[in-house]
Design a protein around this nucleic acid. Structure first.
Lengths: 204, 204, 204, 204
DNA sequence: AATGAATGAGTTTTCATTCAT
DNA sequence: GATGAATGAAAACTCATTCAT
């Protein structure tokens, strides 16, 4: 544990080879973090897993924290993309279909490993990236609130915000729980239940 | 980071004086863990916070991990107690009232700090206490499933289990989220919404 | 005092630079062990004596025990080499000359410090290298027994083994005692006496 | 490891009970030292083995070192007594008989555990008792030299001293080696061989 | 740019010894 | 006197980070 500074990737990779290495390091870091947890994951192990030397790792990331931050940033970006994609279709597909498809997508999404988030979030919160990380769910809630408002589900504003909060947290929590702890559960049945829960909850 | 062994409290305090010290150490540990995170919390800091020497700390807990494990054990025991208390009253009070009161209780419960859980859980999962910690939600789900079965809500068994899973995770997640990230939310309104969500979801 | 594992050097140095450091650490360790004893010798002091950092020390040796083990291993290897060299010449030089020269050699041998052995042996006996260390004298005894058998000194097998045992232990003990406690003794006279003792003892 | 001072028993036990406890502690210490070695033997373990509290142990011995010193003192005293007893009879019994009986006695002597000596000597040498411990063999040598002189074995003085040195060290080393490492050797045969070796060596 | 040996501050942990009860 | 909980100095060991090659 050393004094941290930027906790941002050291250089925006522009060259082809650079970008490949950047990604290789992140992939290796993700694997090692998930397998060993943040504390037991050492930069040497990560470098070894990536097939490079520690020195090279530090060419791309200024600190161990920076790896965690970037990994979590990407995790959240992917999540936001998936959710945004689906919510955009509420108008054409209807709420029920969208919720069902969204839960489905989240339960299967490649590159979204909730375990990684659980392993990293505590550390990243001790970082200057704290605000950004914390704001994520709030941003999601705003998107959802906007949708709900547009959908005309007659609610007072305060109820709307609570509803958005609930919907976002419920969906994320369930997806997280299923994928991390209870991988044996029947995902189709689960998807249907979650959908019913959300739809009934939002009904007038 | 050392190779851990039991990660259990070293002696179960029976004497008056001992018990006080035991509790004082756990309290100090909880404060330090929440303030600094697991990685930055050192046994020396915890001892200092408790107003004792490191040596004494090690008289009661064989390792830093053991502190985390015991803290999480207590957290979960309290949670289980609160939930169990309320669920026992479904017959006399009705589902809606019970859910409302339970959520209320969880949102206010003293001695249950979801932040502490978030700080510790990743660490404890790397411990021999893993199984015990992991099993907790499952136990809660069983209790809930039993209730649902008794309540006659006509469901096939698989649906029952999914329902129990959903209910438990939703309530815990919401409580966690409110208490950790969104303390500004109107708890009464929130309690009502969660109650409505659960009740409607469980309706035939 | 930690729970030890291999107590073997961490990497066998092949590179030039590495080997130098490896040797420098062992030399420093030998000096510190002899000066302070095993218990008072700390890895930090050894590193300082070697002019490097503790971290580097641990790059080469996983524990304090590993240093002791390697040092003793070398001590024994040198001893075995010296003894083996001389015994090989019994045929051409005759028993008496060989014994005399062997004792002479042992009394002067560079790099064989019986004090170091005394300081370390107790520690190493608590180690996984125990068997290896213990077997050493037995191996010497076998070599000597073989010589005696070849030399035709008519003995029953049991007597042969006892004789080998006696010869090995007597020579080692005397050398040890002279070099450690009684450096003032006249080595030439001593060498002659030991030789006489051995030769007369082995006479029919 | 603390700063040592006297390293002598704290009080000369006069009361009956005191003496018993004193002995009980020493016995326990001997067992623990032999089993675990000096470094791994803790005063708490020794107290527990003796069935008393650490505090009581410190009532009798001011430090861990003091235990080692006293134990070694007794070991040496017993050894000296056995050797002295036998040497006193050279006149009446003859050299050969005396040597044979002495080796016999040493190989069987109760309360003389060479392992204990090996475990402790390194530590005790770091103590103020150093001189006393070191002088022990020298004193034995003087006794033996005196005997040899009286026995009329015609030797110049220097040879006498070397002879005494050899005899003492050989006998001790063999006894030590047999009892510590090679308990399976036939003690009668061994006794005969050692006797022959000494007798032949001392013959004109 | 890549390498990986070297660094050393920072942790965890132990245990001889004390002293209030 | 006996007890054993408390102390805290001291040790072993780790690992993020640097930098000479």
């Amino acid at each position: 544990m050393r004094k941290k500074e930027l906790a941002r990737p050291r250089k925006l990779p522009t060259q082809e080879r650079s970008r490949e290495m950047f990604e290789a390091i992140l992939d290796a870091a993700a694997r090692v973090f998930v397998e060993l947890g943040y504390a037991r994951a050492t930069t040497n192990k990560i470098a070894a897993e990536a097939g490079i030397s520690v020195g090279s790792l530090y060419q791309y990331f200024p600190s161990k924290d920076a790896l965690a931050v970037e990994l979590l940033r990407r995790y959240r970006a992917k999540l936001l993309a998936v959710v945004g994609d689906h919510l955009g279709r509420v108008g054409e597909r209807g709420l029920e279909a969208v919720v069902r498809e969204l839960v489905d997508a989240l339960l299967r999404a490649e590159g979204i490993d909730p375990t990684l988030q659980r392993v990293l979030i505590e550390q990243v919160l001790r970082t200057s990236a704290r605000a950004e990380v914390l704001g994520f769910e709030e941003r999601l809630e705003e998107v959802v609130a906007e949708r709900l408002r547009a959908g005309g589900t007659a609610h007072r504003d305060k109820d709307l915000r609570v509803a958005a909060f609930l919907v976002v947290r419920v969906v994320l929590a369930i997806v997280h729980a299923v994928r991390v702890d209870r991988t044996e559960l029947d995902t189709e049945r689960l998807r249907d239940h979650v959908t019913r829960m959300i739809v009934r909850y939002l009904a007038p």
